[in-house]
Design a protein around this nucleic acid. Structure first.
Length: 271
DNA sequence: ATGCGGACCTGTTAGC
DNA sequence: TGCTAACAGGTCCGCA
């Protein structure tokens, strides 16, 4: 499920339960994730206090004095807050238990996610060091995208989904942002004007903000058992709507594959 | 440096 | 009803 809005919603959801709490237990049931769970996670994290719950791109960062837990949810991962005496499911790979017996649980059927332990400067971690700017910060500007894209022949959709260019724009929101900006997803990134990058930048920020706000209202109860959303589905204009009528001009939406990802757009509204 | 395809996994759904 | 194939919200890696 997780695109950036869901990761941010997760961060907001779990933070009140774990911020400034001391870890009293760590249970690893499955080490074989995208990368092996750090072997020293358990011994390193025990007794540490979670001083900050941060996010960088789609990576969640639980910071302690001794180091940082790096969590990525991959395609199918989730984090939940559970009370004591909970039932353990097949894909519940890692639990972090706190002084008040509250459990933070990492669940991930496809195991594309990861749970890593890092000591030292977190910004120098190989997974984080070369990431592009946060999309909703002032660092993402039209000029930045325009400059970075000169000479680039790859499509604009693949370009904005590249985390080294800008983090957090996943497949759903790349489709949505390009529709809103009126840009054809196959257009070469290097052949888009500064003015159009202005439009695209605005669209990315706006759509991510809307999705976070929507997630914030329907996913706020992180101790509930039915954590699964569906909150933004109703507001999607193109994603998952191939063949249906464009909201604006009623032309049937076209669905293709770009970089092995489902891509939906309006041939009339997007050039 | 950029661009592309493959790889990592399981669960759900569409089609025969 | 049951089997098989295709596809799913991510992104790193290796090779051309």
């Amino acid at each position: 499920m997780p695109e950036l809005p869901e990761v941010e919603t997760t961060r907001n959801g779990i933070s009140p339960y774990i911020h400034n709490k001391v870890v009293t237990g760590v249970i690893v049931r499955q080490t074989n994730l995208r990368w092996p769970v750090s072997p020293d996670l358990v011994t390193s994290l025990l007794g540490q206090k979670i001083e900050e719950v941060d996010r960088r791109g789609k990576y969640l960062l639980l910071k302690t004095q001794a180091g940082t837990v790096i969590i990525h949810l991959g395609m199918s991962g989730s984090l939940r807050i559970l009370q004591p005496n909970n039932n353990v499911g097949k894909h519940d790979h890692v639990d972090i238990v706190f002084e008040d017996q509250i459990t933070l649980r990492f669940t991930d059927p496809r195991r594309f996610g990861c749970v890593l332990w890092n000591e030292g400067n977190i910004n120098k971690h190989p997974l984080l060091a070369k990431l592009g700017p946060e999309p909703m910060s002032d660092d993402l500007t039209p000029a930045y995208l325009h400059t970075k894209s000169r000479l680039r022949k790859s499509s604009i959709k693949v370009f904005i989904m590249d985390s080294h260019i800008v983090v957090g724009v996943g497949n759903i929101y790349a489709n949505e942002a390009l529709y809103e900006a009126g840009i054809h997803p196959k257009r070469a990134a290097g052949r888009i004007s500064l003015a159009r990058y202005k439009k695209l930048t605005d669209s990315i920020k706006k759509i991510l903000r809307q999705a976070i706000d929507a997630g914030g209202t329907t996913l706020r109860d992180f101790t509930g058992s039915d954590g699964q959303p569906g909150y933004f589905k109703q507001s999607l204009r193109v994603y998952g709507r191939g063949g249906e009528a464009c909201d604006f001009c009623e032309t049937p939406l076209t669905e293709i594959r770009l970089g092995q990802r489902s891509t939906v757009y309006c041939t009339q509204c997007q050039r």
